[in-house]
Nucleic acid binder design. Structure first.
Lengths: 171, 171
DNA sequence: GTTGAAACGCCCTGATG
DNA sequence: CATCAGGGCGTTTCAAC
């Protein structure tokens, strides 16, 4: 189980992965060696999955973000299979979720402009039948981060106790 | 302007920022020195904005993703100002866009569970008046990437020419 | 663009307390 | 957990082609 120091390490690396182990150790109040071991453990256990470079979408000409809400044509394993394969092959589809409620799937798409989105849309409805597709276009990005919130309730202190009281339904 | 080699470098670093300059140079068909210079330039020019560690949300107990569609209470600068300040202070709000069309704003939220989302929702409607809020809950993540698509049309060859014919509306 | 080389820092691994 | 020590690798810069 992760403790408060692990939480700090993850928090720091989520915002800046160029930090050296020495800097990291300094900021979490540890010496380099155990700090390095913790980082290794966080990677081995799959908490930290990868290190990537983030890019300014405007600078590479991918300025249009579109949220696409989809109602499936039918609810069969085949449909899901075809749909999954289709979006996997589309680099413009950066995120895809299966949803609860009326909307079945939600996509986050990044394209150069309307013309390209239209082409993508056509490829999509051609790959698999859809009952309904609603596209919403972003005008301005107010906030964007890849850093997940690190709640104290999800970590332990050195005695192995929760840092906060039990959270409802999270036992 | 970026050329084909820059495009490859960005593409590689978007998926794996742990690559050494030597490895990178090897894969793009360059020697280390000019490859290193290109990376520096990409960072200085703001194409590459940062390097971060990505984390498995399940492993840190943030398993619930919610898309929130918002219609603003009114359309004044003050409202936008208050709204922006509110979501900036909420780490659970990982993404926020101002949208075209009926929905004014779109949030992507990561929380530990329904209880926490409910608390966030209350904080949100308390911070600023809303005409309508529609929350959609993700059941399963089909795809997720931080890597933007790199279209050949947005890059040049060594002669400075577009790699593809002019794209409609992108001329 | 290329190669080769040097200086420096950091990563990573041990040993010790 | 801390501290110390060391080898090896990668980064960064330089010179010359």
């Amino acid at each position: 189980m992760m403790d408060e120091i692990d939480r700090k390490i993850v928090g720091l690396l989520q915002t800046d992965a160029t930090l050296s182990v020495a800097q990291l150790a300094d900021r979490v109040g540890l010496s380099p060696t155990p700090c390095w071991k913790r980082v290794q453990k966080l990677e081995a256990s799959g908490v930290i999955t990868r290190r990537v470079a983030l890019v300014d979408p405007e600078k590479i000409g991918v300025g249009l973000i579109v949220y696409v809400a989809i109602e499936a044509g039918d609810h069969t394993p085949d449909w899901l299979e075809s749909f999954t394969r289709a979006i996997s092959a589309m680099p413009e589809v950066m995120e895809a979720h299966r949803m609860a409620g009326e909307v079945d799937y939600m996509l986050r798409v990044a394209v150069t402009g309307m013309a390209e989105f239209d082409a993508l849309y056509k490829r999509l409805i051609q790959a698999v039948p859809m009952r309904n597709v609603t596209s919403r276009f972003a005008m301005e990005q107010l906030k964007y981060t890849t850093a997940y919130p690190l709640h104290r309730a999800n970590f332990r202190d050195r005695a192995g106790r929760d840092l906060e009281g039990e959270v409802q339904g999270q036992g």
